[in-house]
Amino acid sequence: MITSILVVIFLAVIIGIVLGISAIKFKVEGDPIIEKIDSILPQTQCGQCGFPGCKPYATAIANGEADINQCPPGGDEGIHKLADLLGVEYKPLNAEHGEPKPKSVAIIDEKTCIGCTLCIQACPVDAILGSAKHMHTIIEKECTGCELCLPPCPVDCIDMVAIEENAENWKWKYPVYKIDKVSERRAS
């Protein structure tokens, strides 16, 4: 009798210690939720989600006014991250808002550009340089590929060009080999 009680107490103590340590180790910190959501959103600022930019969308999600599957540039990965962050079910991207596309940048055909500045006004990240009546160029690095500059251009001189893979941005691929069927479920 006494031994069994001792064993139980012993177990209880060990498990208590284990839980205590885990609690310290895996503690999650609090952070304003809008900021956190916003840091997951891709900042393309394209408005495809139905909001005038990423921050407003983040705010809407935080307030429960929008679903998490409305951002095409963020893609599946983004939705997964949002689902993880908010502790809700993942759902596939809502096709109403568009489909993910390969990342592109806008290129202005400088011969055709009339310098009307309409695209500058549309660009959410001020990635277009130029002043009235002068030809405009896009700072490729800053362009998010949101396509907002396309509709306003009266002469249709802006094209979206997909960023192509080269030796610099090339990535190693996920290994593929023959036998890989056994599910490994041990999580650490």
Partner: peptide, 10 residues
Amino acid sequence: QANIARERNE
């Protein structure tokens, strides 16, 4: 890139 875009947008 996203951070830059956010800053520029703000």
